[in-house]
């Protein structure tokens, strides 16, 4: 464990807690893409299948349970909570996210480190996580401006990915044989997807005006 990875995990934790608290306190999920939340639930479900078979540390197991619990509760809140589900913007959140799942599954069947059930699903979760934010970014473009909590959520997610890249650079220089192209490339693609959002987000901060994303 290094400081970059710990900071990355804490930033990731903060992002899901910001979202969960927002939905729980103001009982609204306006501006939040359910599709992205469903994709993240699938990402965690397929990535943490080894939670019962392999144990790394209390921290690792605890964080896996927190990420699984928070992502699934956000989806359940948005789908079934009597008040929250009414604020879900069904008409705008129309990204065909199932079209993302199949190519990621096929890619995982083609490109993986080991051809085992757990490894292929783990690789699938890497590819899916790289594109999971797309429905949310599309929704932000459509709704033009965003409330600051959803902006903070995406911002923190991007921060977690950026810190993970620093973590990989650190591990590359400190651990022998630390070469994992699959993780690195999918992680890089994911981080680049946030790049343009970061640009507009920082602009809105600089000019201290409401974040307006270009159409």
């Amino acid at each position: 464990m290094n400081i970059f990875r710990l900071a990355g995990d804490m930033t990731h934790l903060a992002s899901v807690l910001v979202l969960l608290l927002k939905i729980h306190t103001i009982k609204s999920c306006a501006g939040v893409s359910l599709k992205t939340q469903e994709l993240y639930a699938i990402v965690f479900a397929t990535r943490y299948l080894d939670i019962f078979t392999s144990f790394y540390s209390i921290y690792n197991t605890l964080m896996k349970l927190v990420f699984l619990g928070s992502s699934f509760s956000i989806v359940l809140y948005m789908k079934y909570h009597k008040t929250v589900h009414r604020s879900y913007d069904r008409e705008q959140d129309t990204f065909r996210h199932w079209f993302l799942v199949l190519p990621c599954l096929l890619l995982a069947l083609l490109i993986h480190e080991k051809f085992t059930f757990l490894e292929v699903l783990w690789t699938f979760s890497l590819y899916l996580e790289a594109v999971a934010i797309l429905p949310q970014l599309v929704l932000l473009q459509r709704t033009r401006n965003i409330d600051n909590l959803t902006g903070q959520y995406v911002f923190l997610l991007g921060g977690y990915r950026g810190l993970y890249i620093l973590n990989w650079i650190y591990r590359y220089f400190t651990e022998p044989h630390f070469v994992h192209w699959i993780t690195w490339i999918s992680g890089l693609v994911q981080t680049l997807l946030y790049a343009d959002f970061f640009f507009y987000y920082s602009q809105s901060w600089k000019n201290n005006k409401k974040l307006q994303l270009p159409a």
């Binding site: 990875r5 995990d9 990731h12 080894d50 392999s54 790394y56 540390s57 690792n60 964080m63 896996k64 990420f67 783990w122 993970y164 973590n167 591990r171 651990e175 022998p176 044989h177 630390f178 994992h180 993780t183």
Partner: peptide
Amino acid sequence: PNKSNMKDEL
């Protein structure tokens, strides 16, 4: 030498 694995990452 065993390859370091990524499964210890979240």
